[in-house]
Simulated assay, not measured.
Amino acid sequence: MKEATFSVYITRGIVQFAAAKYGIDGDRLCQDVGIDPSLLKMPDQQIPGTLHSALWQEVVKRTDANFALHLGEAFNLATFGIVGYVLVNCQTYREVLEKLSRYTRLFSQGAYIHFSVADGFVFCDCDIVEDVKNYLLEQPRYAIESTFASLLTATPVLTGKPLLLQAVWFKYPRPDDISEYERIFATGLHFSMPTNRIIFDANCLNWSILSANPHLLTVFEQHAQTMLEAMNREDDYTRKVVQEIIKQLKGNLPPIEAVARNLAISVRQLQRELQAEGTSYQQLLDQTRKELALRYLQSPHTPIYDVAFLLGFSEPSAFHRAFKRWTGQTPKAYRALSG
């Protein structure tokens, strides 16, 4: 059975908070649970849930049972990667929850977030994925605690207002000591419930996001959507290479050597793996640039020369030639038709 994986953004957050708050040696902590410390420098990578389970258990053993709650209190959207960039540029809190639900899979394949509205309240659920090998089925507490506490921490940053909580549900049994839960959530706490859920006033959905920027939202969401589509592809190395290209394609073309290094594989072996999957690095680079170009050009506010730069073209004329080769149209003509 396939195992659920989790973003190194989560791993890094746990390790860095343990080091900053409790003085734990982060490298030693990683090594003790079987995680290569160098992975923390590659936060868009995914690691198996078994390693996350071992990390949670070890860090709680070395700190306290409420480590995950305290981690959530210290949550910073700036450390959340592309999903964080998407959220801070939404226009309303409803849109924040919609984007969070859509892109949860970029940082967790073991849980998904969704919400509904009824009788003046929002029911925001965090459900565990059951059709994969998933440590959260047996050990959900720390991930759920940190997720819910993070949402409470992020809301005032995004909106300038605290979330108007009505109740918080946890699917797992009541811990012996819930004083920290009571301090942080300050509302009705319920354990051994049918699902993990936060309930709050539906008026919160209309709150404006202080840092909203529709132009940047379009750019970052196009990036996130491309990453999500790459993650959904079945061919393992094709998916990984496309993800690396997207991450590294910021004004310069990523060489295959840099991609291979981040995937901890030799260039020759990577070429063989891609050949076995019926593709090549150059084909994936070309296709990824094309897909990103089509997405970027759908935003009328992004200048064509900025699109050319983002995709690693040395000058707009080179981008024009490539785009015409891809589509038979100029970027300007494509934008006019798609608008």
Rank of each mutant, 00 (worst) to 15 (best):
S7T: 12
Y9R: 11
V15M: 05
F17H: 01
A20L: 13
K21G: 09
G23M: 04
D25E: 10
D27E: 14
D27R: 06
R28L: 12
D32G: 02
S38Q: 07
K41S: 15
I47Q: 05
P48M: 13
H52Q: 15
S53G: 10
A54V: 06
L55Q: 09
E58V: 07
V59N: 06
N66S: 14
L69V: 04
E73Q: 15
G81S: 08
I82N: 06
Y85L: 13
L87D: 03
V88W: 08
V88H: 00
Y93E: 12
V96L: 13
K99N: 05
S101F: 12
T104F: 12
F107Y: 11
F107W: 03
Q109K: 13
G110V: 06
A111F: 04
A111K: 03
Y112E: 07
H114I: 02
F115M: 03
A118F: 07
G120K: 14
C124P: 09
D127F: 08
V132F: 02
K133A: 09
L137K: 12
E138Q: 03
R141I: 08
Y142Q: 10
E145V: 04
E145K: 08
T147A: 10
L158V: 05
T159S: 04
Q166G: 05
A167R: 07
K171C: 04
R174E: 15
I178F: 11
E182H: 05
A186T: 04
F191A: 03
S192T: 02
P194W: 14
I199Q: 06
I199P: 00
N203L: 13
N203Q: 15
C204W: 01
N206P: 08
S211W: 13
T218C: 10
T218R: 01
V219R: 06
F220N: 02
F220G: 01
F220P: 00
E221T: 03
Q222G: 14
T226A: 15
T226Q: 15
E229H: 06
E234R: 14
Y237H: 12
R239N: 05
E244A: 14
Q248I: 02
K250L: 06
E257K: 09
R261Y: 14
R261K: 13
R268F: 14
Q271K: 13
Q271V: 07
L274K: 01
L274Q: 07
Q275H: 15
S280Y: 08
Q282E: 15
Q282F: 14
Q283M: 04
K290I: 01
L292S: 04
L294Q: 07
R295E: 07
Y305L: 09
L311N: 01
G312F: 00
F313L: 02
P316W: 04
P316V: 04
H320K: 15
R321Q: 11
R325S: 12
T327D: 11
G328H: 06
Q329N: 09
Q329C: 02
K332T: 08
A333L: 15
Y334L: 05
Y334V: 06
A336W: 10
